[in-house]
Design a protein around this nucleic acid. Structure first.
Length: 423
RNA sequence: GUGGGUAUAGCUCAGUCCGGUUAGAGCGCCAGGUUGUGGCCCUGGAGGUCGGGGGUUCAAGUCCCCUUACUCACCCCA
């Protein structure tokens, strides 16, 4: 065993998997930039107060915060998510609204790792600040849905709910608390503890013991005020018009306290583990204000990169493809020709690799094969004397001898296109 | 944070129950067969403090204790 390994809950994304991650975020940025979202890169750590606003009763804040004191005595935390940071950035810079941004990057939660759950985990997401038009809810949800579809996923279910406005939500929480307290003796110990902190999340319990009490609980939709109800209906209507299938789930209450009105979650039915939520989001009117900004409406989602890729694996879509170059230069003289040729080819926009350490021709050809190159350019003593080189196609084994000065043109003529002109 | 499982070559794993020469296989890697040609085939080679520490024993990869990590589940979440 090596002396050093990755810390618990972290891992190296090795090639070719890392290339797949980049493609993933490329697909995502294409989808959302088409809809007018701009990239934002907030810092990875902030004053811990920024994240405390996620809710004092949430696990994310009470036990999963990756926090520490820096050398200046500031109490900071690695971001557990990016929504709070985006809202803080909005309050700090006051951009014109509606402000539509997307992000991609790692987040940190101090918890025990298991499949699809890491201490450092990546999310991509979008946030829209400054409008409460139900159409923006529709747009946001659609973009998430569309992204999964473009990856090729077909077993993703969209679950939708409305938590109502602040007053609605409070009345519902009170009613829930009353209901569960009446049935307290039937609840599991964990649920009883959850009840004291946040009655809403008792609904989240998957324990058999709690099922009866949950089934008999009052329904959220009966507590929605007129505004929230109309808003929710308009969102549903918009999604139906865009032909986005969804399931209204009365029990969908999400883990963070800031959600109001629309909440949603993307669940992969292809994943068997309990980490089957591949993405989620909702409306968080009020969060910006809590962070010291003006009253501002907000909505967004975050999608877990790891879990979404697990879902892709489960469905056999969006696989990893290995990196490859256009040309592999084989030099069986002294390596100086490989140096010159690969340099020239790269300057002309071809991707080119070569072997080192003066290996045998057989060894270099094996390396050429492994590199995934379409052609090998071979230089031996004969070619050096004649000022030529051999171009061998690695798929068909056809090869021709051409003057070295014609190499770039020849490669172009057989269909290898320089990716960029860098004269 | 709680409970189960696992840890042997770069990777995937035999061997552990029932302690006993020099710890194996496949794949990968390197070299050769083929002194100018990759994939297929054949031959050879390198590569292991058997996760770490302690204990029992004449003897520990194998039994016991501790520890660390991974993993699955719970909790919760992406």
């Amino acid at each position: 065993m090596p002396v050093f390994q990755t810390s618990p809950g972290t891992r190296d994304i090795m090639p070719p998997e890392a290339a797949r991650w980049r493609r993933f975020s490329d697909v995502f940025s294409t989808v959302v930039e088409t809809a007018g979202y701009s990239c934002i890169i907030p810092p990875m750590f902030e004053d811990i107060g920024v994240f405390r606003r996620l809710g004092e009763a949430t696990d994310v804040v009470t036990k999963e915060m990756y926090d520490f004191e820096d050398k200046g005595g500031r109490h900071v935390a690695l971001r557990p998510e990016q929504t709070a940071s985006v809202c803080r950035a909005f309050a700090q810079h006051r951009p014109p609204t509606p402000w539509k941004v997307w992000y991609s990057g790692p987040n940190f939660r101090y918890e025990k790792a298991q499949a699809g759950r890491y201490r450092q985990f990546d999310q991509v997401g979008i946030e829209v600040l400054g409008t409460d038009d139900p159409d923006i809810d529709v747009e946001v949800i659609f973009l998430g849905w569309d992204f999964y579809r473009r990856l090729g996923l077909s077993n993703v279910t969209l679950m939708l709910n409305s938590l109502g406005d602040t007053d609605d939500r409070q009345r519902y929480v009170d009613a829930l608390a009353t209901h569960f307290n009446d049935q307290k003796t039937t609840l599991s110990e964990e649920a009883q503890r959850t009840l004291e902190k946040n009655p809403l999340r008792v609904l989240d319990s998957k324990r058999e013991q709690d099922k009866a009490a949950i089934d008999g609980a009052p329904l959220l939709k009966d507590f929605l005020g007129d505004d929230a109800r109309v808003h929710f209906e308009r969102v549903c209507e918009g999604l139906r018009e865009l032909e986005v299938p969804f399931v209204v789930n009365d029990r969908l209450v999400r883990g963070l306290d800031y959600y109001r009105r629309t909440t949603f979650e993307f669940v992969s039915t292809a994943l068997e583990s309990s980490q089957n939520a591949v993405g989620g989001g909702g409306r968080y009117d009020g969060l910006v204000e809590e962070l010291g900004g003006p009253p501002t409406h907000g909505i967004g989602f975050a999608l877990g990169v790891d879990r979404t890729l697990l879902a892709c694996d489960a469905e056999g879509v969006f696989g990893s493809s290995s990196d490859s170059v256009d040309v592999f230069v084989v030099d069986v003289v002294d390596g100086r020709h490989a140096r010159g040729l690969s340099h020239d080819l790269r300057r002309h926009g071809f991707s080119a690799d070569r072997a080192f350490d003066g290996r045998s021709m057989k060894s270099q050809m094996k390396a050429a094969d492994r590199s995934g190159a379409k052609v090998a350019v071979i230089v031996g003593q004969d070619e050096v004397s004649a000022g030529t080189c051999v171009v061998r196609r690695l798929d068909s084994s056809d090869q021709v001898v051409i003057p070295r000065a014609d190499l770039v043109d020849y490669l172009g003529s057989i269909g290898l296109k320089p990716s960029t002109e860098t004269a």
